[in-house]
Simulated assay, not measured.
Amino acid sequence: MSFRTRLQGFVENRQKIQIWYGMGCHNTVTGRVLSVDHDHIDVESYSHESDGQIHIRRILVPLHLILHIDITSAEMAEEEDNFSLPVEKEAKQTAAAPQMSVIDLPDAPRGYGVKVLSQLNASYSNRFSRMASGPGGVYFACDGSVWFVDSSGQLTEYARIRGNSTISGLRFDRKGVLYVATIQGTVYRIDPNKSGRILAQLDGSLTGGGTFLSDLAIGTRDEIYVSNFPSNTGGIFKIDRTGEYEVLVGGPGHGTQGLLLDSDGFLWCLEHATGSVVKRSLDGREVARIQVAEPESFNFADGYDGNLSMDSLGRIYVTAGRAGSVFRVNREGRSETFLVGLVNPTGVAFGADGALFVLEAGRSRVLRVAALEKGDRATSATALS
């Protein structure tokens, strides 16, 4: 009997099971399997809370993260519950029904669908930062590690920075070399063979304020642009191939979060003070400025917010963690809400197939957003299956 057939049997029999799953630290969930999809199962879970009630919730568990299924202990737990307090249990479930929550997916524009590509370890909630496309898929950072997510949602640790460094920005060049910035001011260069070295140690006081590197972008001549966001006073550094650096932009009002280099050779920057994306030439000169949202829409406590990505039509996508949204700026300079209902999104990146990937740090998951097939566009779907 195949693993999927066995899971389908749990659905048909309404059998209570315990599932061990996770990446790194293991999680457990006890409940009944409601459905089996091609990449996840939908579990109705029950838990006894400190308020004395049984809380009911639904959890999507990715198939590739399932480590073990325990039938016996789950059945024993159910028998004990039924033997001791069958009437009370039924009453508790009824009382808890209003607290039941379905898997929350953000609202997407008509013609687009959203699905959970990978559920990450909830223990690291809100510690996930930045996302970038790279060889074979998309990559994101968590603390001092860079993780790779393939098309099936499978996670692999790609690289790790030693010590207590916290990665705030990552970007691959055309040769597959990974550049990483840390909030502590260090910029690393990591070759495809995973050998790495320090490219530069930046002094944030040169832009005004302190040091809290936020993001980076790679120029047409392999120069590196790094944003600094200790506060609304900050700026952008430019690093050459040898590691020598200079301040490109700095001072009050120039604290910069996300960076993006477009195909025309312009640098786009998210300045928190005005909630604007600023288009700059590579010598730092301001070319255009577009307000994306009010500054209060973006997180101020860290530099992870305002991640930028551009689609094939030249539209820019911007994360706004405090607003729980992804905004889209079109080529005419108008900003619109693209996704809403997220919890602290910190990363966006486009895959090779044109799909948009969103790193939702508040719910510890990676979402995939893609245009629906033409036959499906008559309905405003918010989930792909």
Score class of each variant (00 low, 15 high):
Val116Gly: 01
Tyr179Gly: 15
Pro86His: 06
Ser168Asn: 11
Ala273His: 05
Arg322Gln: 13
Leu65Ile: 12
Asp143Ile: 15
Lys16Cys: 10
Ala97Gly: 01
Ile103Arg: 15
Arg57Ala: 13
Ala96Val: 02
Tyr46Cys: 04
Asp107Ser: 15
Ser133Thr: 07
Cys269Tyr: 01
Arg289Gly: 10
Phe300Cys: 06
Ile190His: 03
Leu342Glu: 03
Val358Arg: 04
Ala320Val: 02
Arg331Phe: 04
Thr207Trp: 08
Asn164Ala: 11
Ser118Asn: 00
Thr156Val: 09
Gly163Val: 07
Leu67Asn: 00
Ser227Ile: 09
Phe237Glu: 00
Glu244Trp: 05
Phe327Cys: 07
Leu267Trp: 02
Leu60Gly: 13
Ala361Cys: 07
Val36Glu: 06
Asn164Ile: 08
Arg365Met: 12
Ile17Asp: 04
Phe350His: 00
Lys194Thr: 15
His68Ile: 10
Arg127His: 14
Lys16Gly: 05
Asp51Ile: 05
Ser123Pro: 11
Asp222Met: 03
Pro106Cys: 10
Arg57Met: 13
Asp173Phe: 01
Glu79Leu: 06
Asp203Thr: 12
Ala361Met: 08
Ala108Gly: 02
Val366Glu: 10
Gly324Lys: 02
Asp81Pro: 07
Gly306Arg: 06
Pro62Phe: 05
Leu206Gly: 03
Leu213Arg: 07
His38Pro: 00
Arg189Ile: 12
Leu260His: 09
Leu261Phe: 04
Thr346Gly: 04
Ser118Pro: 00
Met310Lys: 06
Leu63Phe: 06
Val247Arg: 03
Gln18Phe: 12
Arg6Phe: 14
Val247Met: 11
Leu63Arg: 02
Ile167Thr: 10
Val87Ile: 13
Arg14Trp: 14
Val366Asn: 02
Tyr317Cys: 05
Ser385Gly: 14
Ile290Leu: 14
Arg127Asp: 15
Tyr317Leu: 00
Leu65Trp: 07
Ser309Trp: 01
Ser312His: 13
Ala181Phe: 08
Ala355Val: 05
Arg162Tyr: 11
Leu248Asn: 10
Met131Gly: 04
Asp283Pro: 12
Leu120Met: 10
His68Gly: 03
Asn126His: 09
Val102Asp: 13
Asn13Val: 09
Phe83Gln: 06
Leu308Arg: 07
Gly250Phe: 05
Leu384Asp: 04
Leu170Ala: 09
His48Ala: 04
Arg368Cys: 09
Gly362Asp: 07
Phe357Asp: 06
Arg368Gln: 13
Leu206Ala: 06
Gly324Ala: 01
Ile290Asp: 02
Trp20Cys: 03
Arg377His: 03
Gly314Cys: 04
Gly253Arg: 10
Leu356Gln: 06
His26Pro: 08
Asp311Gln: 05
His40Gly: 02
Thr211Asp: 11
Tyr139Cys: 05
Ala301Val: 14
Leu7Trp: 11
Ser195Thr: 12
Ile218Trp: 00
Tyr245Gly: 13
Gly303Pro: 01
Asp222His: 07
Val326Asp: 11
Gly210Asp: 08
Ile41Asn: 01
Ser231Gly: 04
Glu157Gly: 12
Thr72Ile: 09
Leu65Gln: 03
Ile69Val: 11
Gly321Arg: 01
Gln8Leu: 14
Gly284Cys: 12
Lys374Asn: 12
His55Thr: 10
